[in-house]
């Protein structure tokens, strides 16, 4: 899976396994908000990328262009000075609209630091 330049700015890498890809964002100066914490904007960007990666994984990159219509991010815990992981879950994959969720964690996937819900428009080829 090829990631865009913005993903490089976040320092993202992809862990592929079964199901949707897991995106990993290392802690770095470029994603720091208040001292010692990951910036909420970087976490939101990571969640969006994870949601869209889940959709491309399900659809195939050549099959559709994905346009996020809106995103709602809930911040639950501060992101500390360690890697953050995120994965997307497709709730419904329609012909024109997909509803996707994503959650981000640091140590334990069961203790999310943030989650997002996206409505996406699918521009199918």
């Amino acid at each position: 899976m090829k990631l865009p330049p913005y993903a490089d700015l976040l320092g993202l890498s992809v862990e592929t396994g079964e199901g949707a890809p897991v995106l990993v964002m290392p802690f770095a100066r470029d994603v720091t908000g208040r001292p010692g914490f990951v910036h909420g904007g970087a976490i939101g960007g990571l969640l969006e990328m994870a949601a869209i990666a889940a959709l491309y994984n399900a659809l195939g990159e050549a099959e559709a262009r994905i346009k996020p219509v809106n995103v709602t991010v809930d911040y639950m815990r501060g992101g500390r000075e360690k890697p953050t992981r995120a994965v997307g879950t497709i709730i419904r994959l329609g012909t024109r609209i997909a509803n996707v969720e994503a959650h981000a964690w640091q140590d334990d996937p069961a203790r999310p630091i943030a989650a997002a819900r996206l409505t996406c428009l699918l521009d199918r080829a």
């Binding site: 330049p5 913005y6 910036h39 939101g44 960007g45 990571l46 969006e48 995103v71």
Partner: peptide, 24 residues
């Protein structure tokens, strides 16, 4: 800035930087 691009074919900014801008 080219480093903020999310859609390389069209040169469109990713949505993440806009989210970060609005948060700040």
């Amino acid at each position: 800035d080219a480093k903020l691009i999310g859609d390389e074919a069209r040169g469109i900014l990713a949505s993440g930087p806009i989210l970060a801008l609005m948060d700040m």
